[in-house]
Design a binder for these strands. Structure first.
Length: 654
RNA sequence: GCCAGAGUAGCUCAAUGGUAGAGCACAGCUUUCGUAAAGCUGGGGUUGCGGGUUCGAUUCCCGCCUCUGGCUCCA
């Protein structure tokens, strides 16, 4: 198994091997000891949670029962860590497949891997599985787990297994085997004393009893091999954890995510609505429009400081523009078209081509560069029905879009500037964690190898100059150039791709862009496409979920509500309201005849940051009683003091 | 686009092959109240749209639209 380096010269020690653990400690065990024996030698507690091991830094997780034949480095994989969880979940998917086979013997199995969140199995079954069926499958799984039979790994002979799977009608397994190289060893895993067997590389937990906490979640359609021309299978999703407690907290977090769903909060808080006559196109209500405009205002304020200039461009262009830019070839099926004066026009799905027209409309000196052109233009993209969702995937939206036209020697500085701006923005919206990805040339792309090479290395340089850690996503670039993507983590630790910086040598060439260079000749500028929030609509959806609708004061559609205790205090309350309005706060009032407790309750459900209560005492003392969102009565203070407090909170973007 | 599920009052949800119901919200009246729900009364529905079966359809069947969970896609 492991390397044969020092061949135990001492004959007395010939039966002993040295196992080096990740902390550097060394354990000596008899040759042929299994991975589980190493864990046992350290402690019974560890042995219980160990589900596999990695030898000599090899990423493959080996089964617990793998014997160690020589000195090696060993990393134990435990069930409470992501790696070990994957083993448990993979085993859970086998158990689920077994349960389904017991209930519907005619089922054909395809694949059943573990995922970040759990596991699934894609099956071909005439009967459409319902939620009740899931409960039945769970019961059957519980039986298999209670039986606690070992998972056994067996090597199988290729032709014989092909024959057998073919005979059983397991067409998907046959196709899988045919796809495995001839020289590769084929293995199956069995449990239930051989009653269930599945083609599988492993590893698995030692026995079915290891799967202690699991739940089946839902059924969905999935194409065989992810190919929309192939049959649609039923994908059964589930999840599994080492401990019941972990499963419960995962389920709880899932419920929390559902409670924070922006579609639900958008309705509850009157932020936006939809109508069947404009599918996948949000209508922002006054409160939602307030937030939307705040997002745009935030970017505009930064643009002033970072040297961007905003432009306003047409909505509809002659298709010639889209043919020139390359969008027509690649994206015409996703664009909206209209016929005007016998010419065909396309509604813009992007701003960049029109920005090249602006750039080309006048001469540029090398001294003028960079030109940073920002645009909040409305974009339309036809998205296939079935892919749209709430605000996160819509057919009409606006980006905090900008294009930087610069010289090649300015690329690094410009990208650094974008990164600085981007960090400032994410900080304002309280996304502390930032992940960075570099995406390289995709299969469908335009431009020469040389240009792509140049662009990719420019981005790499910019990241390295800024000391930014990043991961490479091969083949994930835009069709006109490589890009850097920025991903944030929200309050529920979910990852969202927001910002993007794309380097483009192709568009300037297609539109013949040039500037007068220092040598007195013409040079071609580079175009940097960049967005920080991405789509305003999508960003708003993410923000709603990030804050769970509890927006910081500076973003709240209504910042303050004034409520009266009884009608007698209305004149004073009107005065307070007026002063707040004059000072520029977003304020409203509830002077209805409800009781104070009722009005406070309403203000709380609407998640308004501050409620000012005015009654007898406040009117006579010229104060306001301040209640902060979330059961906090801050007591009375003068209106001036309250407004100062608000001003500083807004200033600090609290 | 594909597979599956859903659509009933402004919202959340009941119910039935034979006049469609609750809570909240809304309106009116009473109550003028000190930090998360006062009381009474009332209005409100072509049960998503269109067609079919039926004496009768919101319920059963067919088509369409929209939404939801996934798959594929995402400049």
């Amino acid at each position: 198994m492991a390397n044969q380096t020092d061949s135990n010269a001492d004959p007395a020690r010939a039966g002993i091997i040295r196992i080096t653990l990740p902390d550097g400690s060394v354990r000596e065990l008899p040759r042929g000891s299994r991975i589980i024996d190493v864990a046992k030698s350290i402690g019974p507690g560890l042995a219980k949670v160990t589900v596999g091991g990695r030898v000599d830094g090899n990423p493959e997780i080996l089964d617990l029962r793998t014997p160690l034949e020589s000195d090696c480095r060993l990393e134990l994989v435990t069930a409470d860590k992501p790696d070990g969880l994957a083993v448990i979940r993979h085993s859970a998917s086998h158990i689920m497949a077994d349960a389904i086979c017991r209930l519907w013997p005619e089922v054909k199995l395809s694949i059943g891997p573990s995922t970040d969140q759990g596991f699934y199995y894609d099956i071909d079954l005439e009967h459409r599985l319902t939620d009740d069926d899931l409960r039945r499958i769970e019961e059957e799984m519980a039986k298999i787990i209670a039986e606690d039979t070992p998972f056994e790994r067996c090597t199988i002979e290729r032709d014989a297994s092909l024959d057998r799977f073919a005979k059983d009608g397991e067409v998907y397994k046959v196709e899988l085997i045919e796809g495995i190289p001839e020289d590769e060893e084929l293995t199956v895993f069995r449990h239930g004393g051989g009653a269930f067997e599945d083609l599988c590389r492993g590893p698995h937990v030692p026995s079915t009893g290891y799967v202690k906490a699991f739940k089946l979640l839902n059924v969905a359609g999935a194409y065989w091999r992810g190919d929309e021309t192939r049959p649609m299978l039923q994908r059964v999703y589930g999840t599994a954890f080492w401990k019941k407690k972990d499963l419960d907290s995962w389920l709880h977090r899932r419920e929390e995510a559902q409670r924070r769903d922006h579609r639900r909060l958008g309705k509850e808080l009157d932020l936006f609505t939809f109508h069947p006559w404009a599918p996948a196109s949000p209508f922002f209500l006054p409160k939602g429009a307030t937030i939307y405009n705040l997002l745009v205002d935030t970017m505009r304020e930064k643009y002033r400081r970072f040297g961007y200039q905003e432009v306003i461009t047409p909505q509809i262009f002659d298709v010639e523009l889209w043919k020139r830019s390359g969008h027509w070839d690649k994206y015409k099926d996703n664009m909206y078209f209209t016929q005007v004066d016998k010419a065909e026009y396309g509604v813009k799905p992007m701003n960049c081509p029109s920005h090249t027209l602006i750039f080309a409309a006048r001469l540029h000196s090398y001294r003028d560069l960079p030109v940073r052109m920002a645009d909040f233009g409305r974009l339309h993209r036809y998205e296939r029905s079935g892919v749209t969702a709430g605000l996160t995937r819509v057919r009409t939206f606006c980006q905090d879009d900008a294009h930087i036209f610069c010289r090649e020697d300015q690329i690094a500085d410009e990208i650094s500037g974008v990164i600085k701006l981007l960090k400032e923005v994410y900080d304002d919206f309280r996304f502390p964690e930032l992940l960075v990805f570099l995406s390289t040339r995709p299969e469908m792309s335009i431009g020469s190898d040389e240009i792509w090479e140049k662009a990719e290395s420019a981005l790499r340089d910019a990241l390295e100059t800024n000391g930014i850690e990043y991961t490479v996503n091969p083949g994930d670039g835009a069709f006109y150039g490589p890009k850097i993507d920025f991903v944030v983590k929200d309050a529920l630790e979910r990852e969202w791709q927001l910002g993007t910086v794309q380097l483009d040598f192709v568009m300037p060439e297609r539109f013949g862009l040039e500037y007068d260079d220092q040598a007195g000749g013409k040079s071609r500028p580079v175009m940097i496409h960049r967005a920080i929030l991405g789509s305003i609509e999508r960003f708003m959806g993410i923000l709603i979920e990030h804050f769970g609708g509890v927006f910081p004061v500076w973003m709240s559609p209504i910042q303050v509500r004034v409520i009266t205790i009884s009608d007698a205090h209305k004149p004073y309350a009107e005065k307070v309201l007026k002063e707040l309005q004059t000072a520029g706060f977003r304020v409203d009032s509830d002077f209805s005849k409800d009781r104070m407790g009722g009005k406070i309750r309403i203000a709380e459900t609407q998640k308004i940051p501050y409620t000012l209560v005015v009654g007898e005492k406040e009117a006579s003392e010229s104060t306001v009683a301040v209640r902060a969102r979330g059961r906090k009565n801050l007591g009375s203070m003068s209106l001036e003091d309250f407004m100062d407090r608000m001003r500083s909170e807004v200033m600090d973007k609290k």
